[in-house]
Computed example of a mutant assay.
Amino acid sequence: MTESSGPHRQQLLRGLSFDHLFAVRTVASAGSFREAAKILCLSQPAVSQRVHHIEHILGSPIFDRHSGIGVTLTDVGRAFLAFCDRAMGVLDELHADIAQDDGGDAETTLSITAPSDSIQYFIIRLLPLLRARFPHRQLRVTQAGSRSESLGMVKSGAADLGFYRVPADPQLSTVALMDEKLHLVAAPGHEILRIPVGERAGALGAYPFATYVASMRSRQLVERWALKAGARLRVDIESQSLDVMKQAAVSGSAITVLSGPAIGDELKEGRLAIVEIDGMPLVRATAIVVRPGDEQRPVIREFIELLVRVGRAASDDATPEVRWSHDSKVAGNAIPLPVPVGGVSAANR
């Protein structure tokens, strides 16, 4: 790769657009160019071209490409992704300032920011219910590239609600907590499923393991489980994308730990199997936060009440449990739960 340097590189960097930055953030979050292209509604070559353009300017790869698995960030890529987060954060602040000056946007829009897996496996499936409950509001859902970005959007007013992994930020009000069960999973017929349950932790190190990158809180949760269970992990694949880890497990290339909402379809279709093992399932908590004072807004209370009721109506791990952060907030009249065609269970499959 030809390296640009000095004033020439600086000039080229100034020519980058937010489309270039968003492409990099989306590939990093999705874990592959193919999945990023679906999210961006672009062709895969178009996404690749944007990333290649930046790599040419930097003179170094942003991603390491892994055939059949996906991509991971290089050291340069992590530095560039941090720059993308800062730049997009400034853009979000500008949007919030404009919306505040405009006055009407806040009254007609319910804006939510969340990590990609919460959107893909939970929020998207609830959109029919949300639209039925809030027919006169535009629902805007924004994928957060990082925990700090999600928090920044709520603090700046660019989002009404934010989903992010606990612990909670003391500058924001936690209105609800969403609990997801995490399971150790493998392809059906995997050798570890033939080992007695009590011996599986000791045997785990013999098999390739796919997990989250070291900076993610879910990775820390998995590592704490492994330490407590006496399991030795042979980490061959690290990714920010649940889909990358899931594909590794479905293909038999690795064992992994994934949330119930992320694997519901694969379990029903027999493409994945839960590996019973000491200490599993884990419970991962996600905080739902608002700016201080906004917890009393009727639209916020109705939104959380809807999530709580859907979580309680679920009969399996494919829908996370949502609870108010304080039980006293549940008191009062229940809000009718609108049911789209197919019912609640269909909306949460």
Rank of each mutant, 00 (worst) to 15 (best):
Met1Asn: 08
Glu3Ser: 06
Ser4Leu: 12
Ser4Pro: 14
Gly6Gln: 07
His8Ile: 15
Ser17Phe: 13
Asp19Ile: 11
His20Leu: 08
Leu21His: 08
Ala23Phe: 04
Val24Arg: 06
Arg25Ser: 10
Gly31Glu: 00
Gly31Lys: 00
Phe33Gly: 04
Arg34Glu: 05
Arg34Lys: 07
Ile39Lys: 06
Leu40Ile: 10
Gln49Val: 02
Arg50Phe: 14
His53Gln: 11
Ile57Met: 07
Leu58Asp: 02
Leu58Thr: 13
Ser60Thr: 00
Gly68Val: 02
Gly68Glu: 00
Val71Trp: 03
Thr74Tyr: 03
Val76Arg: 04
Phe80Arg: 12
Ala82His: 15
Arg86Leu: 15
Ala87Lys: 10
Glu93Leu: 09
Leu94Tyr: 13
His95Glu: 06
Ala96Asp: 15
Asp97Cys: 09
Gly103Leu: 14
Glu107Pro: 03
Ala114Asn: 00
Ser116Cys: 08
Ser116Asn: 13
Ser116Gly: 15
Asp117Arg: 01
Phe122Leu: 05
Arg125His: 05
Arg125Trp: 06
Leu127Gln: 12
Ala132Cys: 05
Ala132Leu: 09
Arg133Pro: 11
Gln138Thr: 13
Leu139Gly: 10
Thr142Leu: 01
Gln143Leu: 15
Gly145His: 08
Ser150Cys: 13
Met153Ala: 15
Ser156Met: 01
Ala159Gln: 03
Tyr164Thr: 13
Arg165Pro: 11
Ala168Asn: 09
Gln171Trp: 09
Val175Asp: 05
Asp179Gln: 05
Ala187Trp: 10
Pro188Asp: 03
His190Met: 09
Leu193Gln: 11
Gly198Arg: 13
Arg200Ser: 03
Ala203Ser: 10
Gly205Ser: 06
Ala210Arg: 07
Thr211His: 03
Val213Arg: 09
Leu221Met: 04
Ala229Thr: 03
Ala231Tyr: 01
Leu233Lys: 00
Asp236Leu: 07
Ser241His: 00
Ser251Trp: 08
Ser251Gly: 06
Gly252Asn: 14
Ser253Pro: 15
Ala254Ile: 04
Ala254Thr: 07
Val257Cys: 00
Gly264Lys: 01
Leu267Asp: 04
Lys268Glu: 04
Ile274Cys: 10
Ile277Met: 09
Asp278Gln: 08
Arg284Thr: 10
Arg291Phe: 04
Pro292Arg: 12
Pro292Ser: 13
Gln296Pro: 12
Val299Cys: 11
Ile300Asn: 00
Phe303His: 07
Ile304Arg: 00
Glu305Met: 14
Leu307Ser: 05
Arg309His: 14
Val310Cys: 15
Asp316Thr: 14
Asp317Leu: 08
Thr319His: 03
Glu321Met: 07
Arg323Tyr: 11
Asp327Val: 15
Val330Glu: 08
Asn333Ile: 08
Asn333Ser: 11
Pro340Glu: 15
Val341Met: 06
Ala346Tyr: 12
Ala347Asp: 05
